[in-house]
Amino acid sequence: MAQEAPDGDTLRLSRPLKALLTGALLAITALFLAGTVHGSDRWWPFGPWRMYATSTAPSGPVGSTLIQVKEAGDDQWRPASLNPDTVGLNRAEVEGRMPQIQADPSMLGTLLESHARLLPDAPQWQAIRVVRSDVLLENGVRTGEVRESTLAVWPSSARTPEDDNPRTLEEAAP
């Protein structure tokens, strides 16, 4: 592109335009500051920049949420991977909605439908349950005990008595 202007030429802005831009910058700055001081994730993109901002205690149970499914023609619960490619959502997004899922387990039914749409050639899922697995830690060391409890089952006909109580999978070594 041919340049008419010689080197060192400067394109200036008028004072009103500068005032307008300065005002816009101050407004955005105020939103980012307010988001950091008062905001939550719902304020995105102005929410607080809280990557790795929480503190972690060295002792206590470490819980994680698992999905188990029954595939067509198989009556055993099998672990299933929970990620955007298999159900359209990732694990944290399902974990964050546990109160609503427990109030209305039919939400889990939508995961079966999404799985069928995303992976039509894979074995179809007939039933699904959400299980919390607690690994017990003592001063940062595993005690060897893992407890599983069922949080929700869909459809409700797939619920069995084992879903009513926590199951201890592994005892601590003597």
């Binding site: 994730d41 719902r42 304020w43 995105w44 993109p45 955007p84 490619d85 159900v87 359209g88 959502l89 997004e93 909605r97 939400m107 939508t110 995961l111 439908e113 999404s114 749409r117 995303l118």
Partner: peptide, 16 residues
């Protein structure tokens, strides 16, 4: 991208 395949029941609108 994959949220296009998730059921709308999972949608939690942000203020934006």
């Amino acid at each position: 991208y994959r949220h296009g395949w998730a059921d709308p029941v999972w949608y939690q609108p942000l203020y934006l």
